[in-house]
Design a protein around this nucleic acid. Structure first.
Lengths: 203, 203
DNA sequence: CTTTTTAAACTGACCAGTCAGTGCAAAAGC
DNA sequence: GCTTTTGCACTGACTGGTCAGTTTAAAAAG
């Protein structure tokens, strides 16, 4: 998901990649450190040389991944703004960016959704922070849209942002898990239709 | 979530209730059978007297819970049909029913979402079946809406159904986890607005 | 010569699943 | 009536395996 050049960075990256797929498939607790090390092709001791604990490895993985998502949403919003597109176009571009992210890192998304709403877990506070960063990008676009009159004043910004993010996340995971034959464009247009409110009747 | 009268039914019910909250908080693997037994107020042996294994207890819990959700969605659709409401009204009623369910059984919802998209897990096939039952209820309403011209022919029924279910699930979990101060009506109207396509401009 | 990685053995806590046995109510036997 | 038997529901100590994390001495890497 990234690359740097020191030896240590390379090892950490290999560990992230190994951990993300294993944990997405099996969950955190049933993934063993031995498995992660083996899949990454390093010795177990190396895991503990690079991370304080299994939990810390996982927390850094979360930060790393959500950072990438946030950056890609932000980039989509910025590009739209640059070429002076509307806010609805920006939302549309963000939906596409979100889908692209999930397509590239399905395992990470899976694991994120599985952990997000759990309470009482060691990494809850980490998650809360990174989630807010991602949702905030959407909230900002919604807010700007309401301000310039493009979006309805009726909308509840935090709730709508959460619903939109959720819609994309869930539709994409469903696509990956149960409807593999559809293309990313199928999914994008289904969601876009919902966003533009063209589900009911009018065409 | 249900009640019957034989001693055994009562015990199983207690085990379901204990398991659902513990697993929602901690995940399946890090919840121990000892914990479940203790919270239910029975001995560990009783768990194994009533269920073949920890996994089987969990699978029956999933079936049980999704059964309740499906029934409640179906009831909402039926009621709307009885008083000859539109399909959009039916979807609206189903959103409300879904929110009501999540409000009543937040732990179950949490656990369902966390497990749904994992692959390679023992209970995958069980989940696939119960998920399909729930989504099918929404698909039917969408299909009928398209047939009677009330909904756009453009919509992709399976994708839209999945997106709608996801939107409700995620918005509701977010509400429970991060925006407790909102009422169920706030959430309902935010989602309803999206459904009716009144997010962009026109009011 | 300092940092990072390796390989392998080890420890101790923890946990799923087992099993011999208990309590109890309703039938069977007398 | 009363006592013996049967079978269901439950109990909790115990076992065998698993796994996070440690330790160590030595080898790569830079």
């Amino acid at each position: 998901m990234d690359s740097s050049s020191t030896r240590r960075q390379v090892t950490r990256q290999k560990l992230y990649e190994a951990a993300v797929t294993l944990i997405a498939e099996q969950g955190f607790s049933s993934t063993t450190v031995d498995e992660i090390a083996e899949r990454a092709g390093v010795a177990k001791g190396t895991v503990y040389y690079n991370f304080k604990s299994k939990t810390e490895l996982f927390e850094e993985l979360l930060r790393h991944g959500v950072g990438l998502l946030t950056a890609s949403l932000q980039a989509a919003a910025d590009e739209t703004a640059e070429r002076e597109g509307t806010k609805v176009e920006a939302l549309d571009a963000m939906i596409r960016a979100g889908l692209g992210f999930i397509d590239r890192y399905p395992a990470f998304t899976q694991l994120y959704v599985a952990e997000l709403w759990r309470t009482n877990r060691a990494w809850q506070s980490t998650l809360l922070v990174v989630r807010q960063e991602a949702v905030a990008v959407v909230e900002t676009v919604l807010r700007e849209g309401v301000e310039n009159g493009e979006l309805s004043k009726e909308i509840d910004i935090p709730l709508t942002a959460a619903a939109l993010v959720g819609m994309v996340l869930v539709a994409a995971l469903d696509w990956q898990a149960f409807q593999r034959e559809r293309t990313i464009d199928d999914v994008h247009s289904a969601l876009s239709l919902l966003l533009h409110g063209r589900v009911s009747g009018r065409r």
